[in-house]
Amino acid sequence: MKLSGAVLFFAGLALAGCQTGPASTDLIRLDRAQGSEQNIASLSAVIAANPQDPEGYNVRGSAYGRAGDFRRALDDFNRAIQLNPRLYQAYANRALVYRNMGKPSEAVNDYNTALQINPNYDVALIGRGNIYRQAGRTNEAFNDFNKAIQQETTDGRAWHNRGLIYQLRGQHAQAIEDFSKAISLSPSSPEPYNGRGVSYVALNDDDNAFADFNHAIELNDKLAESWANQALVYERKGDMARAYKSYSHAVRLDPNYKPAQDGAARTRGNSGT
Rank of each mutant, 00 (worst) to 15 (best):
G65K: 01
G65W: 05
G65H: 01
R66D: 11
R66G: 00
R66Y: 14
R66Q: 11
A67D: 06
A67H: 03
A67Y: 10
A67E: 02
A67K: 15
A67S: 15
G68T: 04
G68Y: 01
G68D: 00
D69T: 03
D69M: 12
F70Y: 14
F70V: 03
F70I: 00
F70T: 00
R71A: 15
R71H: 08
R72L: 07
R72H: 10
R72A: 09
R72D: 03
A73S: 15
A73K: 00
L74N: 04
L74W: 08
L74E: 12
D75G: 01
D75I: 12
D75K: 10
D76H: 09
D76R: 00
D76S: 08
D76K: 00
F77K: 00
F77P: 04
F77A: 00
F77W: 07
R79A: 04
R79D: 00
R79F: 07
R79W: 12
A80T: 12
A80Q: 04
A80D: 02
A80Y: 10
I81Q: 06
I81Y: 08
Q82D: 11
L83M: 09
L83R: 07
L83D: 05
N84T: 14
N84E: 01
N84D: 15
N84S: 13
N84C: 12
P85V: 13
P85F: 06
R86C: 04
R86P: 10
R86A: 12
R86Q: 15
R86K: 14
R86T: 09
L87C: 00
L87K: 02
L87G: 01
Y88E: 08
Y88G: 02
Y88W: 11
Q89M: 10
Q89I: 15
A90V: 11
A90L: 03
A90I: 01
A90S: 10
Y91N: 04
Y91F: 15
Y91H: 09
A92E: 02
A92V: 11
A92C: 02
N93G: 07
N93R: 11
N93M: 07
N93V: 08
N93S: 15
N93Y: 14
R94K: 13
A95W: 00
A95F: 07
A95E: 08
A95C: 13
A95T: 07
L96K: 09
V97Y: 06
V97T: 03
Y98T: 02
Y98C: 00
Y98M: 04
R99M: 15
R99S: 10
R99D: 08
N100T: 03
N100H: 08
M101V: 04
M101Q: 14
G102Q: 11
G102K: 11
G102H: 10
G102L: 06
G102F: 14
G102N: 04
